[in-house]
Nucleic acid binder design. Structure first.
Lengths: 156, 156
DNA sequence: ATGTATGCAAACCATTTGCAATGAC
DNA sequence: GTCATTGCAAATGGTTTGCATACAT
């Protein structure tokens, strides 16, 4: 992550802690730094391992507490995956569009400006939008081909 | 849920079970019926309670197995909420837009024709679109209010 | 008769909680 | 010194698993 982003988020955290009379613990800054070093999303487990590798051990309880704080400051966003929650540094609003084959599970990124624009222009009442995640389900061409072959085979 | 839909999904299930030499157990049809009676999303716990109220007890293990089967047949879709998985009956190409609070996890349905149109008009190469699922993440008004209150309190 | 499906209870595992110890102020 | 914060370990709770039993075919 670019240095000026890390400087900026450290400042956001510092300001918040000072203005709200909360403590500037080394743990909070170490976790923030580690989070903004991830190239993309991560699990709490993975965050733990990175800190471990930096010889900065932080308990699970503190990791959960700290991430919760960062989410309130919107320095981190999260989404639930199968089995665990995944997090992502929020350096601006990150959004994703993917096409997912419901048969083989293959995932591909989709780029669609009209979709992004449509989501941005959709007004939500009593809700501050921050990002979105779109999954388009269907059948990829390889699976379509395979199914067609199987059908033909059975009809013989 | 309209009767013709329930008839149709029962037929989908019956066909699948017969063609794949799997058993047409009363549990599977009772669970399918209960699922298509929910007006919207539900947890496994809630599904269990509905079946209980109908004096049709089904074990948790079977509920999970059955829902997994239905998800493969795409009669059910699911998404992970905070603390639990939530499910929803799906027949035909049902698409969903939801707003999800990243702090409390509350989920609300969103209706947006422009978004639906934008997704429909997006062409995907070598992929047959069937449905989509959109999660818009952000902070709901109650959480915004709670955070503001906490800040004010501490600043006193 | 066969083997799939169910029910039960234990196991699993991410997350939360309670509390004593630490350390930021 | 005070009390927010941390670390530890136990508790929680949704989901999965293993296996004996039941039952659809």
């Amino acid at each position: 992550m670019k240095d000026h982003v890390k400087t900026a988020v450290r400042e956001v955290l510092t300001n918040y802690l000072e203005q709200n009379k909360r403590r500037k613990t080394p743990e909070r800054f170490a976790v923030l730094d580690a989070i903004f070093d991830f190239p993309s999303h991560f699990s709490l487990q993975e965050l733990d391992e990175v800190l471990e590798s930096r010889h900065f051990r932080v308990s699970k309880a503190t990791l959960y507490n700290t991430i919760k704080l960062f989410m309130e400051l919107r320095l981190v966003i999260s989404y639930r995956a199968v089995g665990e929650t995944r997090y992502e540094a929020a350096y601006g609003n990150v959004s994703h569009c993917q096409q997912i084959c419901t048969i083989c599970g293959r995932v591909n990124a989709v780029k669609s400006l009209p979709i992004i624009r449509a989501v941005e222009e959709t007004h939500l009442r009593r809700f501050r939008k921050e990002s979105f995640s779109l999954q388009i389900y269907g059948v990829c061409s390889s699976c379509q081909a395979r199914i067609t072959r199987q059908k033909n085979k059975k009809q013989l």
